Amino acid sequence: MKIVTGAMAGTTMPALSSYVGRLERDVEQASHQPYRDDQPAYDEGMQTLWRELAEIVQAIRANDMTRKHYPDLLG
C-alpha cells in the first residue's frame, strides 16, 4: 500500500499528516462500498480501521508520533 509506505517513510509531522489525510479519504470512500460476501464483517472491519485512524490523527495533533509508535498503528 503506497500510502502506508509513504507514511512510514515520512520524516516530518506535516508529511505524515498528509499521508494519513489521504488514507482517511480513501477509507471514507471504501467504507461506502458494498461488500457482497460478508457485509457485517466488512462494516466491522471498517469501524476498526476508523478507530485506529482516529488514534493516529489524535497523536499527530498532539505532535506525539514517533517512529517507535506509528509503525504499530499503521500496521
Score class of each variant (00 low, 15 high):
74 L>H: 01
75 G>R: 06
59 A>F: 13
33 Q>V: 12
55 E>L: 15
38 D>W: 11
15 A>V: 09
54 A>P: 00
14 P>Q: 14
68 K>Q: 13
33 Q>Y: 11
68 K>R: 14
22 R>N: 10
61 R>W: 07
28 E>R: 10
42 Y>I: 04
64 D>F: 02
69 H>C: 11
7 A>Y: 00
5 T>D: 03
33 Q>R: 11
24 E>A: 05
30 A>R: 09
63 N>K: 14
3 I>C: 02
24 E>D: 09
52 E>R: 11
23 L>K: 03
7 A>G: 00
41 A>C: 04
16 L>G: 07
11 T>E: 09
44 E>P: 04
55 E>D: 15
65 M>W: 10
3 I>F: 03
35 Y>P: 05
44 E>M: 10
3 I>T: 07
60 I>W: 05
2 K>F: 09
60 I>H: 07
4 V>S: 11
55 E>C: 15
63 N>Y: 07
62 A>R: 13
66 T>P: 00
15 A>W: 03
74 L>P: 02
13 M>P: 09
16 L>K: 11
70 Y>K: 09
53 L>P: 01
62 A>D: 13
48 T>R: 12
26 D>G: 10
66 T>D: 01
59 A>Y: 14
47 Q>K: 08
25 R>F: 02
33 Q>W: 08
1 M>Y: 15
16 L>M: 10
24 E>M: 03
31 S>Q: 03
6 G>S: 12
27 V>Q: 02
42 Y>F: 13
44 E>W: 12
71 P>N: 02
68 K>N: 12
55 E>A: 15
75 G>I: 04
60 I>E: 08
60 I>A: 12
46 M>K: 06
71 P>S: 02
42 Y>N: 01
32 H>G: 09
50 W>M: 14
69 H>I: 13
9 A>V: 00
14 P>V: 15
34 P>V: 15
12 T>K: 05
39 Q>C: 03
45 G>M: 06
36 R>H: 14
42 Y>P: 01
18 S>M: 10
57 V>Q: 11
51 R>G: 07
71 P>Q: 02
57 V>K: 13
69 H>L: 14
16 L>P: 08
15 A>H: 07
22 R>I: 05
38 D>K: 10
43 D>N: 14
41 A>N: 04
61 R>A: 12
56 I>T: 09
